[in-house]
């Protein structure tokens, strides 16, 4: 956990530096006490300071952890495996969601929703059967009809139709 804090602390430090450096190119109106760069500079410096505190806290606690026994390290490595295992599905979910957005953009919400439903079913249940797949397609179709009539027709909401079909 401390290593993760260290990494995130470094990321925030990087972001704060990036924003701070970017403010150098901002114009400075002569009559104003605080120009467009003033507020972001204060915010980026404050974020940078807190990121540094997080980094030093993580380094200090990592050093303390080093003193722990080998058995403890072994236990921790086991824990780390579980952590990596837990993130597998969310990362796959992120990829599927990214694909869903592309499908919505190019092919519209009908193809997008059906494909997304099928991919999610496979991610969540790798031992899927044809019966389950058929059920998924039926569920997706019901959802598409509901979305079309409820949001598209009743509430006049824009639904993505896809650039291919436009």
């Amino acid at each position: 956990m401390k290593i993760k804090d260290l990494v995130i602390g470094c990321l925030f430090l990087f972001i704060s530096c990036l924003f701070f450096i970017a403010t150098f190119s901002f114009p400075t109106p002569p009559v104003q006490a605080a120009g467009p760069a003033f507020w972001p500079q204060i915010m980026s410096i404050t974020l940078g300071v807190f990121a540094l505190v997080l980094i030093s806290k993580s380094i200090y606690e990592l050093k303390k952890e080093k003193k722990a026994s080998i058995i403890k390290i072994k236990k921790n490595s086991k824990k780390r495996d579980t952590v990596t295992e837990g993130i597998k599905r969310p990362v796959m979910g992120m990829m599927a969601t990214g694909l869903f957005i592309s499908l919505l953009h190019y092919f519209g919400f009908i193809i997008g929703i059906v494909t997304y439903f099928i991919i999610i079913t496979i991610i969540l249940n790798p031992k899927y059967s044809w019966k389950r797949l058929t059920l998924t397609i039926i569920q997706a179709s019901i959802l598409i009809i509901t979305i079309y009539f409820l949001f598209g027709e009743f509430l006049n909401i824009n639904l993505p139709t896809g650039i291919v079909f436009n």
Partner: peptide, 14 residues
């Protein structure tokens, strides 16, 4: 999961 994902992304678009 797919219900919340679809509604949230379509919502952001809508």
């Amino acid at each position: 999961i797919p219900l919340v994902a679809i509604f949230s992304l379509l919502g952001a678009f809508a």
